[in-house]
Design a protein around this nucleic acid. Structure first.
Length: 211
DNA sequence: TCATTAACACGGG
DNA sequence: CCCGTGTTAATGA
């Protein structure tokens, strides 16, 4: 297990901290589609993502879901940081996008480490910065972009995360993540296919253009 | 104008 | 048959 931590975080944490991590942390494996954090749930451990991808969703009072951002290897969820420190409930939902592994760390330790290790302190602050940026992108997408552009972004983002140009997803899945209807997704995807940007298959989509 | 909802047909597994 | 997909018609913002 220490090797896993070394692989994912060795470049950022000093050896002493890696040592402490491997002693205290508990590994937890999850499968695709697992519900990791539910809205309203209290957080008692802080998760560090070793591998895999997790998507962070927001839910509307009226049954609507919306994807905020993805987190990947080497990330933590900034939301849980605030929840841990403030001992408050989660405002978001976390769902496993792929299978993967997280490290669970007792929250007492994360406060202690804040004063002990500058690499830890920097990591936490960086996480906040990154999440804030992702959040701004999500807001831009919602406020200023047409559905067609949101879908293109979504497809590119996903493709980048799994480093694969073939996405195993359905029109309905996309509609749920973007909080729209499948009819719209189907129509726009069809249009993109006609423009030779993508190739549609059953339960999967191929991206034809890179970047 | 563009999204949503409901409804339907098609076809692959 | 069931589910994902493609399309249309009606309605609403």
């Amino acid at each position: 297990m220490k090797q896993h931590i070394q692989d994912a975080y060795g470049y950022i944490f000093e050896p002493v901290l890696i040592g402490e991590l491997s002693q205290l942390a508990v590994e937890y494996n999850f499968k695709e589609g697992d519900l990791l954090i539910e809205i309203g749930q209290y957080i008692k451990k802080m998760p560090l993502l070793l591998n895999g991808v997790i998507k962070i969703m927001r839910e509307d009072p009226d049954e609507g879901e919306l994807l905020l951002y993805f987190i990947e290897k080497g990330d933590t969820c900034a939301m849980t940081l605030t929840c841990c420190l403030g001992n408050s409930k989660s405002d978001i939902r976390a769902i496993a996008e792929t299978e993967g592994t997280v490290l669970m760390i007792p929250i007492e330790k994360m406060e202690e480490w804040m004063t002990l290790y500058q690499s830890w302190r920097r990591f936490v602050i960086n996480s906040y910065n990154n999440r804030l940026k992702e959040m701004l992108l999500a807001i831009d997408s919602l406020a200023f972009m047409k559905m067609e552009d949101r879908i293109i972004n979504y497809l590119k983002e996903k493709s980048k995360l799994i480093s694969n140009k073939t996405l195993n997803t359905t029109h309905q899945d996309i509609a749920n993540d973007l909080n729209t209807s499948r009819v719209v997704v189907s129509r726009i995807l069809k249009k993109l296919e006609n423009e030779k940007q993508i190739k549609l298959n059953r339960k999967s989509i191929d991206l034809l253009l890179q970047n």
